[in-house]
């Protein structure tokens, strides 16, 4: 292979590497959760909880609440098991009655009105439709915030070019309108942009 071709390939591959591998890690600022938590343990057979046991509707019924410490204290007033996270939960938060500063993955932009109660109770959409297997995850991933737009990666999509292979890969406007089309719901602008 001549040197000209090698130079071209070097530039091509180098830039592809930067664009596909390094750029995403530069673009998103990772923010670790304050405490590790296993959804799988809580929703597994041993405990058998469902999503809405902890994620209840907020007062305005628009959002599903991030559990408060009082929810955790119902079972975790004392250390259960031997995990490091469990010990930290009790020592750092329960013992001092301090709320856990969880970081929200899927907060919608301000210009969108999204009501969980309409989707969960009236349309009877399963949580997995938008949130995938989050309810069965063993650990909490870092929240990734786009340094330019300020949006969460869970909204923009985990796959960097914004492709969607599964329903829960993205939560962008196209995904909302596709689902509305599928279910015959209105796609009027004012439905979401109130």
């Amino acid at each position: 292979m001549n040197s000209g071709r090698l130079s071209f390939l070097a530039g091509l591959v180098g830039m592809l590497l930067i664009g596909w591998v390094f750029f995403p890690s530069l673009l998103y600022q990772k923010e670790p959760q304050p405490l590790q938590f296993s959804h799988a343990v809580h929703t597994g057979e041993a405990v058998g909880m469902t999503c809405d046991n902890c994620h209840t509707f907020t007062a305005d019924v628009r959002s599903m609440a991030i559990p408060r410490l009082s929810n955790c204290k119902e079972c975790h007033s004392e250390v259960l098991g031997e995990s490091e996270a469990e010990k930290r939960l009790v020592d750092e938060f329960v013992a001092h009655d301090r709320e856990i500063p969880w970081r929200t993955y899927s907060r919608q932009p301000d210009n969108v009105y999204f009501s969980h109660i309409q989707h969960v109770q009236i349309a009877e959409i399963e949580c997995e439709r938008c949130h995938g297997s989050h309810g069965k995850s063993e650990t909490l991933t870092d929240r990734q915030i786009n340094r330019i737009s300020g949006y969460s990666r869970n909204i923009e999509g985990q796959i960097i070019p914004g492709l969607r292979f599964k329903a829960w890969d993205r939560m962008k406007m196209d995904d909302c309108s596709d689902c509305h089309d599928e279910r015959g719901a209105s796609n009027s602008c004012l439905k979401c942009h109130k």
Binding site: S3, F8, G11, M15, L16
Partner: peptide, 17 residues
């Protein structure tokens, strides 16, 4: 070669997200 490197980089840039 520098020009070809730049050309490859430009193509790679466009083919990246």
């Amino acid at each position: 070669n520098i020009l070809k490197l730049a050309g490859g980089s430009a193509l790679g840039f466009l083919l990246s997200p």
